[in-house]
Design a protein around this nucleic acid. Structure first.
Length: 593
RNA sequence: GGUCCGGUAGCUCAGCUGGAUAGAGCAACAGCCUUCUAAGCUGUGGGUCUUGAGUUCGAAUCUCAACCGGAUCACCA
């Protein structure tokens, strides 16, 4: 029986009436007051028939007499602040300490399976800051779902076909002189991206020339020879022209090699990758099936549509008049393949909020097509990453490249560490490892601590801070805890297995145990509300409180052995929670820094 | 215009299933390194929680309206 239940039962007994849980408002006591938990008595006034102070007093006295968990209480206005006995906190710490994986659950064989789609890059340019947020959120969400006992399949749908890749292919064919990642030393995705940019440049040039010859902008676009060539290439690709397909395969493989490097640097991975080139035909088939069943309808020009006006939306195109598929068609095909491949109970799409409408429609369409999971699909919708000057714009060259960003973060971490003398006496390998851990930790934490739904501002110039509410601060706290534990081992002090309940721990220590005990609930809440940010902010709170404690009390110099044992155990378990919490964010934690 | 999302300190963000005097970090200022790691700690200043109304014992939190910002409403992906 937890404390909430105990309190509810006691109040029921005191007044002789049944209560529902919402009437027992037990919350964490605000810091400026003494106590751990606070009962708000306003909802109980009708039952007690007395004023707030009297009611609180009455309940407090009753609880103190009948529940050994409580040591004392105080009443301020309508608030009953309850102080929990130190022994209870020690009991909790002992329990936490006995769990190897405190805060997380393992999936059992009949646990529900959740598939998480994230990343989903186009193959015509390298990953940028927006993708970074996507990847970090997706990976973290997967870890969080796992920690809550789900089976998780991480998946990636690669948008490998379409006019965009043809543009890069064409530019490379025309002006590339056979350049390869090997010959130029460029990373494959950047190489392709460069040709995509080159195409755009040449295309703009052509448009300008055409317009100079008196054509309107629209006419110029129609007459563009370059664009016509790109379209022709796409047709050839769809027709299976061997040469085009071969080039496509080669260039895509360069991109994948490049992406793999970026994914590896970010520490994200996938269990199953789908390619649009392999799913779009299935989508087409599904749509035609829907047409036959009368779920969709066809217009005179041959295009296929879904009428969603009954659901408050408008009409949506599913197949073009020439029979080719659109974005939505592909997503239907991909969904079909996935559910053929896995017994998926829950499907989560990590995709930016600019596609909210798309997923609203997809959900309805899948449902209409008879996929039972359609209605319940989750669009994990996250906000954009903006720069201090506003949005990232490729035309203005303000796009923050993922690889550059990672490199800079590691470099900044190295410089800062050097300045602080942290890397003195480290081997080059160790120094590199620490710089990587800290740099990536700063980046990941910075992005994940923000509520995913919100747009966020990222200032690359000031880079990311290493002080205050940051990843490195938390990593630093962890490293210090490890340092204490190492020193303890050196002094032949064994980590205690159980603490004597009767030692008197101070308020700060009680609070730390209380905070620690909330970890489990936080992990659960993060999964329910799909928010890594909840974990990030909690871990920061924990680390901050511990740092303050650490500053005020020395552990190894404590003379009282039981006290020393307690503090060691507390430290070890807070370290454990930080490590676990960070692993749910996909952030590593260094043993020393 | 329709739909959706957001607006909290100079800046970046917590808090939002209604509870006490709205919290952190950064930036500014003043202190603390013979003490288990100073990427730290302590203190000071900083607020019309966009605005207005409503619900209530009580509203940053819920409702409605307005204003501001963003997204979306393609035979683009």
């Amino acid at each position: 029986m937890n404390i909430q239940e105990k309190v509810q039962k006691a109040i029921e007994k005191l007044y002789g009436t049944a209560l529902n849980a919402s009437q027992v408002q037990l919350q964490k006591t605000k810091k400026e007051f003494k106590g751990h938990l606070t009962l708000v008595v306003f909802p109980l006034l009708k039952i007690s028939g007395k004023n707030p102070e009297q009611t609180a007093l009455e309940i407090g006295e009753y609880l103190l007499k009948n529940e050994s968990v409580f040591a004392e209480f105080n009443v301020i206005k309508g608030f009953l602040n309850l102080v929990i006995a130190p022994a209870y906190w020690i009991e909790i710490l002992n329990t936490i300490n006995s769990q190897a994986h405190y805060g997380t659950k393992n999936a059992d064989s009949n646990a529900p399976l959740v598939m998480i789609e994230y990343s989903s890059p186009n193959t015509n340019k390298p990953l940028h800051l927006g993708h970074v947020r996507n990847n970090l959120l997706g990976y973290s969400l997967a870890e969080i779902m796992k920690a809550n006992g789900y089976k998780v399949v991480k998946t990636n749908i690669v948008n490998d076909r379409g006019i965009h890749i043809c543009k890069s292919m064409l530019a490379w064919k025309k002006w590339g002189n056979g350049e390869t990642p090997q010959s130029s030393g460029k990373k494959g995705d950047h190489l392709i991206g460069d040709y995509y940019v080159l195409f755009d440049k040449e295309y703009k040039k052509e448009l300008k020339e055409l317009q100079a010859n008196g054509l309107s902008e629209k006419e110029a676009e129609v007459q563009s020879a370059l664009m016509a060539e790109a379209r022709e290439m796409l047709r050839q690709w769809e027709a299976g022209d061997p040469e085009t397909v071969e080039l496509w395969k080669t260039m895509n493989s360069w991109v994948y090699t490049g992406f793999d490097e970026t994914y590896k640097a970010l520490g994200v991975d996938f269990d199953k990758i789908y390619y649009e080139s392999e799913t779009y035909l299935d989508g087409k088939e599904k749509v035609l099936e829907g047409l036959n069943k009368g779920v969709f309808y066809q217009k005179e020009d041959g295009s296929v549509w879904a009428d969603l006006s009954a659901d408050g939306l408008d009409e949506k195109l599913l197949l073009r008049s020439d029979g080719t598929s659109v974005y939505m068609t592909q997503d239907i095909g991909t969904a079909k393949q996935r559910f053929d491949d896995y017994p998926i109970n829950k499907m989560i799409y990590v995709v930016g909020n600019e596609q909210n409408y798309h997923f609203q429609v997809l959900s309805l369409l899948l449902d209409k097509l008879g996929f039972e999971f359609g209605k319940g699909l989750v669009h994990f919708s996250y906000g954009m990453v903006e720069l201090p000057e506003g949005k990232m714009k490729s035309r203005e060259g303000t796009v923050v490249d993922a690889d550059d960003l990672v490199t800079e973060m590691i470099e900044t971490a190295r410089e800062t560490s050097n300045e602080l003398g942290k890397l003195d006496g480290c081997s080059p390998e160790e120094a590199q490892k620490i710089s990587y851990t800290v740099g990536l930790g700063a980046l990941k934490y910075f992005i994940l601590k923000v509520d995913p739904r919100k747009n966020m501002v990222f200032n690359p110039k000031e880079s990311i801070d290493f002080n205050g509410n940051t990843g490195p601060f938390i990593q630093y706290t962890y490293a210090r805890i490890q340092s204490v534990l190492r020193k303890a081992t050196e002094q032949n002090i064994l980590l205690p297995v159980e603490i004597n309940k009767n030692i008197l721990i101070n308020e700060k220590e009680q609070y730390l145990v209380q905070l620690l005990s909330e970890f489990e609930g936080v992990v659960k809440e993060a999964a329910e509300s799909y928010s890594p940010a909840i974990i990030a902010n909690y871990i920061y709170e924990l680390a901050k409180e511990y740092n303050q404690f650490y500053h005020d009390y020395s552990i190894l110099r404590e003379e009282n052995k039981e006290m020393k044992d307690f503090r060691l155990m507390l430290s070890a378990n807070i370290g454990k929670a930080i490590k676990t919490g960070f692993s749910l964010l996909g952030i590593d934690v260094p043993e020393r820094m």
